[in-house]
């Protein structure tokens, strides 16, 4: 009980170190979701509308990548960005940018796979109408993504949940450097192993609260949007 009390105090007194950690966590995860959406939504929509040999294989692999272990993604990005790796000259290893790249790799398959499913369902409904209006391939993708926008919010939330919760990838490519690449999840892992449970519990509470707030905001935005646009 004493641990939880001091964790609460830590949060309420507004420890600056704590807020720096929370801020970086949000920047990294939200940036990763944005990058992953820019890649995953068009890719998923295209996959939904095209038919080619091997498409089933692509879908299976994409769905499987939703469960890509974060440490494996982290290792892959580490190898790419390490001094001797192909992108070593970029000097990104152990920076927030490297963490964003790693989380983008984790989140993009989730957004792409969920977009593919959503758009494909909508396509079966819209197909005749769009064919009658002689809408071309690019117009179809744009129409379906726009009309599926409220359902796609759920895909983005799933991606954000994955990014905000994971520790394996960003601890490998970020290094958990105090004041630079330390996030809530990496700090929780570190503080727990050091035995500083109050800080770990405080960060855990903050992390869960933020995830609930962001989901609530997205839910509210979706409901309001649906009421307005049907």
């Amino acid at each position: 009980m004493t641990g939880e009390t001091s964790a609460l105090q830590l949060v309420l007194t507004g420890d600056p170190g704590l807020y720096a950690i929370v801020g970086l966590s949000l920047v990294v995860s939200l940036s990763a979701v944005l990058c992953a959406a820019l890649i995953g939504v068009p890719f998923g929509a295209l996959l939904a509308l095209t038919r080619f040999p091997g498409r089933a294989g692509v879908i299976v692999v994409l769905n499987a990548l939703m469960g890509l272990p974060p440490v494996v993604a982290g290792l892959a990005i580490y190898l790419l960005l390490s001094r001797s790796g192909p992108l070593g000259s970029w000097g990104l290893l152990f920076t927030p940018q490297a963490m964003i790249i790693a989380q983008t790799v984790l989140v993009a398959p989730i957004i792409a796979a969920l977009t593919r499913q959503t758009v494909e369902d909508l396509w079966s409904e819209y197909r005749d109408e769009l064919a009658a209006l002689d809408v071309g391939p690019i117009g179809r993708v744009a129409t379906l993504v726009w009309d599926a926008r409220f359902s796609l919010v759920t895909a983005l939330l799933a991606g954000f949940g994955r990014a905000a919760a994971e520790v394996g990838a960003i601890i490998i490519v970020g290094g958990n450097i105090d004041g630079f690449t330390r996030t809530m999840t990496t700090a929780i892992a570190l503080e727990t192993s050091k035995g500083d449970l109050p800080l770990a519990i405080g960060l855990g509470l903050v992390l869960i609260t933020i995830i609930i707030v962001i989901n609530a905001l997205a839910w509210g935005a979706r409901r309001a949007g649906e009421r307005y646009a049907g």
Binding site: Y126, E129, D147, F150, A229, G230
Partner: peptide
């Protein structure tokens, strides 16, 4: 089909105004 149009038995309303 630029100068012909069809009204389906169950037309699909786009999720817009």
């Amino acid at each position: 089909p630029t100068r012909r149009a069809i009204l389906f038995q169950r037309p699909v309303m786009l999720r817009r105004s």
